[in-house]
């Protein structure tokens, strides 16, 4: 009985005093990776000769890779015990952000397509005698 309790206590002490997530190796990997991705994006934009649509895709991929890299190596997402609430909340956030941003752009772009051109608007306003 006594020895068993001691083992439990020892385990808890060890798990409490060990840095459970953060290690120097992880921070170095995260930092180096982010540096490479940031400089890659900067150099491509400043000196690259790719066409615009290709550049958009490349830069988006570089940004998303850096996002995932920092989530894992700086913010330690996905390194917790089950139930993985932190991971769940993070994935939900990505979903909400996607709906919010993509939805806004979609709706506003659609509205823009339905807008009258400025010359037509002036013509219309003149014919209506200023409403």
């Amino acid at each position: 009985m006594k020895s068993q309790t001691r083992t439990v206590a020892a385990d808890v002490m060890v798990s409490l005093h060990q840095p459970e997530e953060a290690t120097l190796k992880k921070y170095v990997i995260g930092f180096t990776g982010s540096l490479v991705l940031t400089f890659g994006a900067y150099l491509l934009t400043q000196y690259g000769a790719l066409s615009k649509p290709v550049m958009i895709i490349v830069l988006a991929i570089l940004a998303l890779s850096q996002f995932v890299l920092q989530l894992i190596y700086f913010l330690h997402v996905g390194k917790e015990f089950s139930p993985r609430l932190k991971l769940l909340v993070t994935i939900f956030m990505v979903l909400i952000v996607f709906i919010l941003v993509a939805g806004s752009i979609w709706i506003m772009d659609n509205l823009k397509g339905r807008m009258m051109s400025q010359s037509n608007m002036v013509k219309y306003m003149n014919s209506q005698n200023g409403l």
């Binding site: 940031t38 994006a41 900067y42 934009t45 615009k52 550049m55 958009i56 830069l59 988006a60 570089l62 940004a63 850096q66 996002f67 920092q70 989530l71 700086f74 913010l75």
Partner: peptide, 26 residues
């Protein structure tokens, strides 16, 4: 430290969407 890392994560997107896309004229 979580807060500070989070702000850097937000900056990745400001850097890409505002500045890089801006300079490209997207």
């Amino acid at each position: 430290s979580l807060f500070w890392h989070f702000l850097d994560v937000v900056w990745i997107f400001i850097f890409t969407i505002v500045y890089l896309f801006g300079v490209l004229g997207v």
